[in-house]
Simulated scan of single mutants.
Amino acid sequence: MIFLLAMLATTCVLLYFHNRNTQQNLPSVTITYQGAEKFTSTDDNDGLYCKLITNRPDYSLYVTGDYYDCYNDSFQTPEGYKLRELLLLVWWGKTKKGREIDANIPKYFYDRYKINPNKVTKMFFSDSLIELVDGRVKLTDRGRELYQQYQSLWDIHSQKGFYGNLDNDFPTWDTKTFLIVKNTQKVNYLKAMARYHRDLLEYYRKYEPKNTEEANYHQDQCTYYLDQVNLVNTAIDALME
């Protein structure tokens, strides 16, 4: 038994030094990446593949805006209210017949705009911007004036697919301009994604020609993203008419 254990230990030691010497004697690998046009590698293509994979475009680096980056309180209103507070006033005034006093206030006022809607609503009552009429909350004449002045806040808040910032966008808000800018950013992202999959397609065609499943996948992705580019460009053209 002792003899077997000794032999096993000796074998492990010999294997360790053999592997270490083998790794030390491996030639250095140099990888040059020049996009889909040319791939070169002197030894191991795994490094090139890893480089291509890590080049996947980050949407947030192309299309500006974030769900939680929706205000910064930099815009000073003449009335002294924050724009995110006035967004709540706009919400109260969006229905002609008024909202019930116990209406459920959307959660995004809490988790996204970081206000206490009940406290702000009480402030609006105290400042005579809203009033209770037959059990419903309605805007006063003064509240209606502010509603009309700040109702574009709702457009900024409710854009589909893109995120605006109340304080940054309100002073010069124009829906068409906003959508043209965001869709142009999206086109750049889609083109980058098409290039990303094109480069991987070229990799598989050159280095792993038998892996047709991966090649076909990246070919399909190239087609998909280029089709999306055309669709978004069509939307931009329509906005610019």
Rank of each mutant, 00 (worst) to 15 (best):
I2Y: 10
F3Y: 05
A6W: 09
T11H: 06
C12N: 03
C12I: 15
H18K: 14
R20K: 11
N21T: 08
N21W: 11
N21P: 02
Q23L: 08
P27C: 01
S28Y: 04
I31M: 02
T32Q: 07
K38M: 05
K38W: 08
F39T: 00
S41G: 02
S41Y: 11
T42S: 14
D43T: 10
D44V: 09
G47M: 02
L48H: 13
Y49R: 12
C50D: 14
C50S: 15
C50N: 15
L52T: 03
I53E: 14
V63Q: 03
Y68M: 13
C70V: 13
S74N: 06
P78I: 06
P78W: 09
E79F: 05
W92R: 01
G93H: 04
T95D: 14
T95Q: 10
K96W: 12
D102F: 12
N104G: 08
I105T: 08
P106D: 10
I115W: 05
N118P: 00
K119Y: 11
K122Y: 03
S126T: 12
S128I: 01
L129M: 15
L132D: 09
V133E: 12
D134Y: 06
K138R: 14
R144E: 09
E145W: 05
E145T: 13
E145F: 13
L146S: 10
Y147W: 09
Q148Y: 06
Y150R: 13
Y150Q: 07
Q151T: 14
S152R: 08
L153W: 08
D155W: 02
H157Q: 14
H157L: 00
S158C: 11
K160Q: 07
Y163G: 06
D169E: 06
F170K: 03
P171W: 01
T172G: 04
T177E: 11
V187D: 00
M193T: 00
M193C: 04
R195F: 01
Y203V: 01
K206M: 09
E208G: 01
E208S: 11
P209K: 07
P209Q: 03
K210E: 13
N211C: 05
Y217G: 02
Q219F: 14
Q219S: 13
D220P: 01
T223R: 08
L226W: 04
D227V: 04
Q228A: 12
N230I: 05
L231A: 12
D237Y: 13
D237W: 12
L239W: 00
M240W: 02
E241M: 10
